[in-house]
């Protein structure tokens, strides 16, 4: 961990330098370093640092986005080798994301998608003005763990409730967790419509998703035991 090579990887993410991150990843492969170690001890440590710095107001959204982009660049290089070695970077969970029906605002949702995907989640982004039926269909198709619905407008927040109701109607919950976000969204609204979680920003969304995955995992274990 104190290895200067891993340190450089970490720093390339903190600096938000995708070219450096790519070069370091290539170098790691050339030197025969385990790609999983490069991720866990190098690059991912950078993302964690960036997230912490953002949390305490020392880094800002453009910094964070740059870090996430650098992370993506490094993973892109390392992924084929990881697959080859069978040490696929563990997917933390599958998340279907989209902006509620009638709402075309996606800046917050995109931010959440970038941060979550850089942190190891597999993201299925349905884009903007997504109907409840589309959310349900995608969640079924990819066997999603979490469905996230964003809404900026006070007038489209009702669409978040519609998605949760549709998930319920289709029997996807409680296995699939529903989370919401957006400028006008409050924890009160989340509770009112029966969402499993709400976060105010992308970093909190990462924490929220990780916590929910803990609960999903437990449930899955229970289910598997029951089936067996």
């Amino acid at each position: 961990m104190s290895d200067p090579f891993f340190g450089a990887m970490r720093q390339s993410i903190i600096d938000g330098a995708p070219d450096t991150a790519t070069a370091l990843a290539q170098q790691a492969l050339a030197n025969g370093i385990d790609p999983l170690a490069a991720v866990n001890q190098g690059f991912a440590a950078g993302i964690k640092f960036a997230g912490d710095q953002f949390g305490c107001g020392e880094m800002f959204l453009p910094d964070l986005l740059a870090s996430a982009e650098a992370m993506k660049a490094a993973i892109k290089i390392l992924e084929p080798e990881m697959l080859k070695r069978g040490s696929e970077c563990k997917v933390l969970g599958k998340i279907v994301l989209g902006t509620a029906r009638g709402d075309i605002h996606d800046i917050g949702k995109n931010l959440v998608a970038t941060i979550l995907s850089a942190s190891g989640f597999q993201i299925f982004d349905l884009g903007t003005s997504v109907t409840p039926e589309q959310f349900v269909a995608k969640a079924k198709e990819v066997d999603a763990d979490i469905v996230g619905v964003s809404a900026l407008l006070t007038t489209t927040m009702a669409g978040q409730k519609a998605v949760i109701e549709a998930l319920d109607r289709n029997g996807l919950r409680p296995r699939v967790k529903a989370i919401i976000g957006g400028a006008a969204v409050t924890s009160k609204w989340a509770a009112e419509i029966g969402a499993d979680g709400y976060s105010r920003n992308a970093i909190d969304a990462l924490e929220l998703a990780k916590n929910l995955m803990g609960r999903v995992d437990n449930k899955d274990v229970n289910k598997r035991t029951a089936l067996a």
Binding site: G102, T154, T155, A158, A162
Partner: peptide, 25 residues
């Protein structure tokens, strides 16, 4: 302001009917 007392019912009904969520708020 939006009148949630009047138009929330409208919203919910409208949502069930897959109509515009804002209905006539």
């Amino acid at each position: 302001v939006v009148c949630n007392d009047a138009c929330n019912d409208a919203c919910n009904d409208a949502c069930r009917d897959s109509r515009a969520p804002s209905a006539i708020g």
